[in-house]
């Protein structure tokens, strides 16, 4: 198991290297000019100089190698400097956003909390809601509970989040006035009343994403439970005289969780992707919104960094899913 984890982690390195190369190539091929948004009064010669200053005059492989150095050597060294206070990084060049001229990672770190709060919370809530619903739906298959659950989850994953988001805004912000339609990032929680404001502004974006996640996970949980409820070992457990909730929550659940846990783990990075739209709708200025504005402004270093971070998350959570699988299922032994 330990060896397997090490090997998989090492294998992830060439994978990520390849992904970063492809991303760099794609962004290089994309049309667009980083100086396009500068005032028109700037003469063409100056524009050209700006481009050269951004490093765009260099051939492709040099730019890629520079980016690699900046991202994989300079940035970690800088982080180390920040954490320890000892100067490791010297005057090494960090990855700089073309838009704001400040280091990309600093902006990412600023935006991360918003995304984590809304997206992370919605995933946790979605999972917590989904698991019991899936379990009960399977145990009481075709009951009214199951029927309603089926209907709601159909709705949940067939209606896109930008629609449910706007719908909620219309109902709860415009008509009822219960919750704000815009997420105020500058709001700071200091006491009870400001906490309540924070919760209020989080409810709608969180719920939109939670509904979407819960719909998928609960369906998956239900299917997995149904698979296992028909197994012979369930009958053996009953024949031992075990109570029904022990049969269900110890014997069946433990088996059913194996595929579900992997699905939940693999789903984490895709949730960040899905959040891009929801963040737009509720004006949460998290990572999703950062990516959108960076794309619009041709801020290649920012786009490259963000997409690469998503790629890292995907690889990481796939690895995590595999490891969890091995832990949960004694039949799997990674040699």
């Amino acid at each position: 198991m330990f060896n397997y984890t090490i090997r998989r982690t090492l294998l992830a390195i060439p994978t990520l290297f390849f992904i970063s190369l492809v991303l760099f190539l794609l962004l290089d091929l994309a049309p667009g000019d980083p100086t396009a948004q500068l005032p028109l009064t700037i003469p063409p010669e100056v524009r050209e100089k700006i481009r050269l200053a951004l490093g765009l005059g260099e051939p492709f492989h040099i730019r890629f190698l520079l980016w690699l150095e900046q991202f994989f050597i300079n940035e970690p060294l800088h982080l180390l400097t920040e954490l320890t206070g000892v100067d490791f990084s010297g005057d090494r060049q960090r990855v700089i956003s073309w838009q704001s001229r400040s280091p990309v990672m600093d902006i990412v770190v600023q935006r991360l909390p918003q995304t984590l709060w809304v997206v992370g919370m919605s995933y946790v809530i979605g999972t917590i809601i989904a698991l019991p619903i899936g379990i009960i739906s399977a145990y009481r298959q075709y009951s009214w509970f199951d029927q309603i659950g089926t209907f709601v989850s159909m709705v949940g994953f067939s209606i896109p989040t930008f629609f449910t988001g706007v719908l909620l805004i219309v109902i709860f912000s415009v008509h009822l006035g219960w919750f704000p339609s815009i997420y105020d990032t500058t709001h700071v929680v200091t006491d009870w009343s400001s906490l309540i404001v924070q919760i209020k502004q989080m409810i709608m974006p969180t719920m939109v994403l939670a509904l979407y996640n819960a719909a998928q996970i609960s369906r998956f949980m239900r299917a997995s439970m149904l698979d296992n409820l028909n197994q012979d070992y369930v009958r053996t457990a009953r024949a031992k005289g075990l109570r029904e909730n022990v049969v269900l929550l110890v014997h069946v659940l433990r088996n059913s969780m194996i595929p579900v846990v992997t699905v939940i783990a693999i789903g984490v990075p895709t949730v960040f992707g899905g959040a891009i739209i929801t963040e737009q709708v509720f004006k949460v200025n998290g990572l999703g919104q950062l990516l959108i504005t960076a794309i619009q402004a041709n801020d290649i270093p920012m786009v490259q960094t963000l997409t690469f971070i998503f790629a890292v998350l995907i690889v990481l959570f796939n690895l995590l899913a595999d490891i969890l699988y091995g832990i949960l299922d004694p039949r799997i032994r990674y040699e």
């Binding site: 197994q231 012979d232 070992y233 009958r235 053996t236 457990a237 024949a239 014997h251 433990r254 088996n255 194996i258 949960l328 299922d329 004694p330 039949r331």
Partner: peptide, 16 residues
């Protein structure tokens, strides 16, 4: 006590 017909599937695979 009950012994079931199919020993291959009658035990729970994830418990010792």
């Amino acid at each position: 006590g009950f012994i079931f017909q199919d020993p291959m599937t009658s035990l729970n695979p994830v418990f010792s």
